[in-house]
Design a protein around this nucleic acid. Sequence first.
DNA 1: TATGAATGAGCTTTCATTCAT
DNA 2: CATGAATGAAAGCTCATTCAT
Lengths: 239, 239, 239, 239
Amino acid sequence: MATRIQLGNGQPARSPAPRPRLRRGAGRPTGAAGEQLRRRILEAASAEFARSGLGGARVERIAAQAGANVRMLYYYFSSKDDLFLAVLERAYATIREAEKALALDKGEPQEAMRRLVRFTWGYYFSHPEFITLLNSENLHQGRHLERSARVSQLHAPFLEMIGRLLERGARAGVFRHDVDPMQLYISISGLGYFYLSNRYTLSAIFKRNLMTRERCDVRLAHIMDVVLGYLRPQRSSLS
Amino acid sequence: MATRIQLGNGQPARSPAPRPRLRRGAGRPTGAAGEQLRRRILEAASAEFARSGLGGARVERIAAQAGANVRMLYYYFSSKDDLFLAVLERAYATIREAEKALALDKGEPQEAMRRLVRFTWGYYFSHPEFITLLNSENLHQGRHLERSARVSQLHAPFLEMIGRLLERGARAGVFRHDVDPMQLYISISGLGYFYLSNRYTLSAIFKRNLMTRERCDVRLAHIMDVVLGYLRPQRSSLS
Amino acid sequence: MATRIQLGNGQPARSPAPRPRLRRGAGRPTGAAGEQLRRRILEAASAEFARSGLGGARVERIAAQAGANVRMLYYYFSSKDDLFLAVLERAYATIREAEKALALDKGEPQEAMRRLVRFTWGYYFSHPEFITLLNSENLHQGRHLERSARVSQLHAPFLEMIGRLLERGARAGVFRHDVDPMQLYISISGLGYFYLSNRYTLSAIFKRNLMTRERCDVRLAHIMDVVLGYLRPQRSSLS
Amino acid sequence: MATRIQLGNGQPARSPAPRPRLRRGAGRPTGAAGEQLRRRILEAASAEFARSGLGGARVERIAAQAGANVRMLYYYFSSKDDLFLAVLERAYATIREAEKALALDKGEPQEAMRRLVRFTWGYYFSHPEFITLLNSENLHQGRHLERSARVSQLHAPFLEMIGRLLERGARAGVFRHDVDPMQLYISISGLGYFYLSNRYTLSAIFKRNLMTRERCDVRLAHIMDVVLGYLRPQRSSLS
DNA sequence: TATGAATGAGCTTTCATTCAT
DNA sequence: CATGAATGAAAGCTCATTCAT
C-alpha cells in the first residue's frame, strides 16, 4: 500500500500494427454477481438511449445510473453500438414475449383482434422507450439490427399467429378475405405508434395536448374503429 | 472572457433542463446576395438534419455543403437550434402549401379522399427528410416547435378542409357520420409514416426489403383499403 | 457577456450515417500568424515524436510545447497520424536539402566520398530525433510514408548524385567498378545509424559508454576506413 | 486504497522520469505445469513486443495469445516492464548461443569471417522480432537492460572470439592489422540491421521493395564485399 | 495455481461557438 | 458581408494493474 509511481507507458490502440480488437466474446460472464451488473447496465442503457437517442446517450450517464464504472460497460459490452444492439434485442424480445400471452388462437376472432389492437396501443403507450429506440435505429438505417440474427427469428411465428387469426375470422364470415398479415400488423402498429411517437409535433400543430387520459382513450377507440371497420367483409369493391 | 456555464450534454434529458436560447426575430434584413446564401444554408441544413438528426448534424458540414463559412451560419441563424427551427418551419409550410392544391372541396368525396391518401403517402415517400426532421423534434420533445407561432396557424384551415370533405361524404351517404377530422388525418398519416419511417427495422424483422417499388405500391393500396374501408357507412356498431 | 447556459447537444461523430470526415485540405492557412503557429506545432511534434515514438507521443504535450490549444493541432493537421507524416516529410526534406550542399560533383572523388561519409555520420549524430522518427515509422511498417508522394521524389536525384561520384572515382582509378549507389548509401548510413540508434543496448552489452566524444571519433574513423577500404580497386576477386 | 500517483504518460521522456520498478529476482519457483505456462507467456510477449513495441504491446493480447489470464502474467512476471526485460534477456541469450556454433576459431580466417557475416545477416533476417525488440529498448534509453547483469556477461567471450579470429587472419596476412573487434562487429551488424530494420522507409524512399528474395541476396553479397574488402591488408594508408 | 470482476487515470478526437480582422 | 484562427469542455474508449475468491 505504499505510494507508488507508475509509468504505465500507455499508448492508444491506434498506432501499432493492425491487430484484431480483443472482443470479449460479447462479454459473457459466468458469475452471478457479474450477471447482475450486466443487467443493471442494460437497463440503464435502455433508459438513456430512450431518453436521448443513440447519439445523444452518454456512456458515463449509463454507467452512473447502473452504479458502475464506465470501464465495466466496455467489459460486458464491447462498445456503445454493441450495447445499443443488446438493448434493442431485449426490447423486441420483451414485446414479442408479451404478445404470446394474447392467445390470439382462442376466443371469438373479432374479440381476439380487439385484444391485439388494445395490446399494441397499450404497449407503445406504456413503453415510450421502445418507440424512441426504434426511431434511433431507423435514423441509423438499421445498422445494428441488421447484424442481429436473433431478432428476425422472433417475428416469423408472430406473423403466422396473426395469419391464423385472419383465416379464422374470414372463415367465420366476420373478416374480409384479402388481408395480408404483415400489412395489417404494420397498420395496427402505425395507427398507434405515429400518434405516440409524434405526440409533441402533433400537439404543437393542432394546438392541443394529445396526451391527456381522455384523448388517449379517444384515440384507442378510433384505432379500434379503423381496424375493425376495415376488416368488415366487403359488400362491394371499394378502392 | 465572460463566465460561461456549459452543460454540453445535449438532448432533452433532465427535467429542469436549461433551454437553449432561441432568439427569434433576430432575422437580419439582408440584401439579395445575402438572401441567396441564407437559402443555401437552409437547404444544406435540411439535408444534414435529415440525415443525422439534430444531435448528429454538424454545423461545419452544413456550412461546407452550403459553400459558406461556419461563421455565416451563425450570422444568419443565431444558433444550431434556431437553424433547426427554421428548417422545421419551412418543412411544414411546404407540405401544407402542397396540400392546398388538392382541392378537397371539389369532386366526388371518395375520389377526393383517395387524392388525400395518395398525396400523403407520396409526400412522405418522396420527402424522407421530413420524417427524420419530425422524429428529431419529437425526440427533443417538441422543444423548438413550441416556440413557433407560425406553424400552428397553418393547420387550422387544413383540418377544416378535411372536416368539410367528411361532411360532404356523410351527406352523400358514402362516409360514416362519426369521423373526427384530426383522428382521421392522424390515421392517414400514421399508416404511411410508420411504414416509411421504420423501413429499416421493419425490413430487418420481417426479413424482406420493404422499399422495393412493388411493395410500396402494395402498401399504398393497403392504406387506401384501410381508410376507405373504415369510412364505409356502418350497418351495425362495431367496437 | 452575461452568464449563459448552453446545451450544445453535442453528439460524437461515431453514431450517425457515415459521412466523409471534413478534412481541412491538409490545413492550409493563409494568414501569417497561422503559419507561425503551424510551424511551432510541427517543431514541438518533431521533438515529442522523437522522444517517445509515435505511440508514446502525447498530443497534449505537443500542443503545450507549441504554446497552443490541442484543438489547433487538429485544426492544422487533421490527426495525430497526419501530423506524424508531416514531421517525417519535413525531416527527410531537411536532410536531403543539407546533402545538396555537399557538392559531391566537385573535388577529388575520394575527398568527396569522405565528405559524404562525414556528413552522414554527423547528421545522424546531431539529429537523434531523425533516427527515432525513422524507427517509429518502421515499427509501423511504413504506413505513413507510403501515402507520401513528396518523399520519394527527393531521393532519385540523390542516388544519381552518388552514382556520378562513383563513376568519377572509377574512371580515376581510385574506386572499384562494381558498386551500386543505393547499396553503398545504405551501407554508409547503416554503419553510423546502427551505432547511434542502438547506443543504449550496445553500451549495455559491451559495458562501456559508446557516446563519449572520443569513442564517437573512433567510430567515425572506423566507418571511414570501412567505406574507403571497401571502395579500393580490387586486385583479385574476394567474395 | 493506497495513495497512488500515476504518470501514465509512458515513454522515456522527462529526465527525472520515475523509473518503473523492476522487482527482479522475484522469480517464483514453479512446478512443471507452471513452467510451461510461463514459457508460453514469454513467447507470446516476444511476438507482441516485436509487433507493436513496448508501448504498443497490450498485456491482454499477450495473455490471450498465451492462452492465459492477464492475472497470470502478473503472477509470473511482476509487471509489463519486467516481462519486457525477460523477453530481451532471452533474445540475447538465444543469438549468442547460436553464435557459439560458428566455431570461428576453426577453419580458414576468411572463410570463418564469411560464416560470421552470413550468420549475422541471416539471424536478423529470420528474427525480425529481435530487431524490433532492440529498437524498443533503445527508444526507452536502455532502461531495462541497464538492470540486467546477465546480458553483459554474454558478450565478453563473444568479442574475444572475434578478436582471436582477427589475429589469426592478420598473422596469416589476409586481414589488415588495425581492426578493433567491437567496431568490426558493430559494422557487420549495422550493415545488415539497418537494411532490415529500415526496410519500410528505405523501400518507400527508393521506390522499390527491398525485401524480395533476390534483393536480399544482393544485399548479403554487398555486405560480404564491404567487410572483406575492408579487411584486405592495406597497401597504403587511406583515411 | 488460477480466474472473473473491477478501477481510475488518461488518451485521441470532436463539438458548437466566438474573437479579431 | 465575410473569413481564418481560436477555445474549453466533454465524449468514447483503452490501459496496466489489482481485488476477491
